[in-house]
C-alpha cells in the first residue's frame, strides 16, 4: 500500500496517479482503434474528454448542492481542488450522460464506438486494480493463507492483486481477439461479461462487501445478472437473421 509518494514538498496521491495513467492509456488505445471501426479518432477523444470534464465538474456541483448551507457561507470553496469534496456516483452518471449525448449529436454509431473503446476500458480495469493496491481499498477478508497480506490490522486476501491479475488476463484476451469478432458490439459485450465474471469470482474473497438478504454479497448478485443478460445479448448480436419477407 502506497497512498502517498512524498517527493520533497509534494505529496503525490498514487491512486489518482494510476487512474490518470489508465485514462491516458485508454485515450491512446481508443485513438489507435478508431480507424479500424471507421470512426474519427478526434470525435471519439472528445467523447471521453467531455465525459471526464462534465463528470468532474458535476461531481463537485452535486456535492455543493448536498451541503449548500456550508457553501453559501464560503462560496469560493466551490473552486477547491480537494478531491474529497466530490459526489462520485452522481458525477459519473452525469458525465456518462453528457458523453452519450455528445456522441449521439455527432452521429456516432453505438456498437462500433463501444468496440473501439473496449481495449481502453480493459486497460482502465488494470489501472483501477493498481489504484486499489496503492490505496488499500477493495480489501480482502481475513485469512490464514500463506499468501495473505497484512492490511488494516489483519492478515487478508490480497484481493487487489487478484483484481490486477484478472484485469490483466481480460486485457490480454480482448487485445488478442479484437480483430476476430463476429459482429459489431461483440467485443464490448465480451469485455462486460469477462469483467462481471471476474467480479463474481473475486468478490467472494473481499472483506468489504455490501450484504443483502442476510448473507449474500450484492456485487455478486449484480454480476451474475449482468453476466446472464450480456451472454444473451452476445447471441442476439450474431444470430442468423431471418430473411426479409418483402424481398
Amino acid at each position: 500500500m502506497l497512498p502517498i509518494l512524498q517527493v520533497g514538498p509534494l505529496a503525490i496521491q498514487m491512486p489518482g496517479l494510476f487512474l490518470l495513467a489508465g485514462v491516458w492509456v485508454a485515450v491512446s488505445l481508443t485513438d489507435r482503434e478508431a480507424p479500424r471501426h471507421s470512426l474519427k479518432a478526434s470525435v471519439l477523444s472528445n467523447v471521453i474528454l467531455i465525459g471526464l470534464v462534465v463528470g468532474i465538474l458535476s461531481a463537485r456541483l452535486w456535492y455543493v448542492m448536498r451541503f449548500l448551507e456550508v457553501y453559501l457561507d464560503s462560496p469560493v470553496s466551490v473552486l477547491s481542488l480537494n478531491p474529497s469534496t466530490l459526489a462520485p456516483l452522481e458525477g459519473a452518471l452525469t458525465g456518462l450522460f453528457a458523453a452519450v449525448y455528445y456522441g449521439y449529436r455527432k452521429g456516432l454509431p453505438l456498437w462500433p464506438t463501444l468496440d473501439a473503446m473496449t481495449p481502453g476500458l480493459a486497460a482502465v480495469g488494470i489501472a483501477v486494480g493498481l489504484s486499489h493496491i496503492a490505496s488499500g481499498d477493495a480489501f480482502g477478508a481475513e485469512t490464514g493463507l500463506p499468501w495473505s497480506i497484512e492490511l488494516w490490522g489483519a492478515q487478508r486476501h490480497p484481493t487487489q492483486i487478484y483484481e490486477v491479475l484478472a484485469a490483466g488476463i481480460i486485457f490480454w484476451l480482448i487485445w488478442k481477439n479484437r480483430r476476430q469478432v463476429p459482429a459489431s458490439g461483440f467485443l464490448f459485450l465480451a469485455w462486460v461479461a469477462l469483467s462481471a465474471l471476474s467480479r463474481l469470482a473475486i468478490e467472494a474473497f473481499r472483506g468489504d462487501s455490501v450484504i443483502a438478504f442476510g448473507s449474500l454479497r450484492t456485487a455478486q448478485l449484480a454480476s451474475v445478472m449482468v453476466l446472464a443478460m450480456v451472454l444473451a445479448g452476445m447471441h442476439f448480436l450474431v444470430r442468423p437473421q431471418a430473411p426479409d419477407p418483402r424481398r
Partner: peptide, 9 residues
C-alpha cells in the same frame, strides 16, 4: 483542506 471540506464532513 478548505473550510467547506471540513464543515461538509
Amino acid at each position: 483542506m478548505s473550510e467547506a471540506t471540513i464543515r461538509t464532513n
